[in-house]
Deep mutational scan, measured.
Amino acid sequence: MSIQHFRVALIPFFAAFCLPVFAHPETLVKVKDAEDQLGARVGYIELDLNSGKILESFRPEERFPMMSTFKVLLCGAVLSRVDAGQEQLGRRIHYSQNDLVKYSPVTEKHLTDGMTVRELCSAAITMSDNTAANLLLTTIGGPKELTAFLHNMGDHVTRLDRWEPELNEAIPNDERDTTMPAAMATTLRKLLTGELLTLASRQQLIDWMEADKVAGPLLRSALPAGWFIADKSGASERGSRGIIAALGPDGKPSRIVVIYTTGSQATMDERNRQIAEIGASLIKHW
């Protein structure tokens, strides 16, 4: 058993032996400061991975655009179909130039040979490839079927209504393609630790998130040596930015963190910096 498999397999085991986890309101002070700095709403939640207890939250039940963070949920739905014998990670999917949409750094290189379902999930999560996400959405029946999958998990909040890139429109008060921090954190925890997916599929999902290559300026920039993080970021119109993550010290995840912001006029660099500073406060007061 690899170190990674050891880590995921023991998450339920550690729940019975973990020390009490204490919240630190200092992080919420930073979240509120980020709102002031960005001139935008910020949603935040910090969840204990083992118990599911909410440690801190700010606007946990307000809607925010999901942006590309939905791609983790999408690959969770794909893995659920794999577990049920309805899909194979090794199945190759062929597509054409007409299928390519904006920001497809991986799929645009494989027009001649296509990509496997496994490769598409990797591209969608680690590189946020939009065509990969659309191709995967097609395999499960489209955005409405992803919403149905989430409903069956008990998440009646999170919804996907459109495809890439239209889902990134982020119109104020538009509930399409949105979630709430509390709903996203709970759903992510179920995917990573619950019985919905097999152990192998849970491991695969967290491996893809751990290999994320496009979230460096966010929480990863504040991470001390030896800490673990598996994450997925997102960005969209109207100053929207977000990240969902499982992270913790000693090389294993122990908390879920979800951060969303929307409605800012700030630059992408400034949005990144504010999220990184929230992460730094979280780690300092861990």
Rank of each mutant, 00 (worst) to 15 (best):
W163G: 05
R271P: 08
A170E: 12
L188R: 01
E175T: 12
M153C: 12
G242I: 00
E169H: 08
V82Q: 04
A266S: 12
R241K: 04
K252F: 11
D174V: 02
V31A: 06
K252T: 12
Y260D: 01
P249V: 04
A230G: 08
A280T: 15
G43Y: 00
A266T: 11
D48E: 10
A34V: 10
L247D: 00
T178D: 01
D177Q: 00
G226M: 05
L218P: 01
E35G: 03
H5A: 15
V42E: 04
D231E: 04
R159S: 04
D174G: 04
F58A: 08
W227E: 00
P224H: 04
A182P: 04
R91N: 07
S201N: 07
R92L: 12
A222C: 13
Q88W: 15
E164G: 03
E277W: 03
T262R: 08
T158D: 00
K284D: 11
E56P: 00
K213R: 12
G90C: 10
T138P: 02
I229T: 01
S96W: 08
L135R: 02
K213S: 10
A77R: 08
I125Q: 00
A15G: 15
D129I: 00
E166C: 10
F17V: 12
R91L: 03
M180K: 13
L74V: 06
P181L: 02
A230D: 02
K71R: 01
K252C: 11
D174F: 03
I93G: 00
N130T: 00
R92P: 07
A15T: 03
P181F: 00
R176Y: 07
V214A: 08
M268Y: 07
F6N: 12
E62K: 06
K284M: 09
P65H: 08
W163Y: 11
P249Q: 06
P12Y: 14
R189G: 08
R220L: 01
L167V: 10
M127S: 09
L10Y: 11
D174P: 00
H94L: 13
P12A: 14
K213C: 10
L167P: 01
S80W: 11
T179S: 06
S2T: 14
I11V: 15
G242S: 06
Q37T: 15
E237G: 05
D99G: 06
R220W: 00
D83G: 04
R7W: 09
L188V: 10
E277K: 07
T107I: 05
T186K: 14
N134T: 01
R118I: 08
Q86L: 13
L219T: 01
A15P: 08
M180E: 12
K252I: 12
K252A: 12
P224W: 00
M180S: 15
L218M: 07
A280G: 09
A183V: 10
L89M: 09
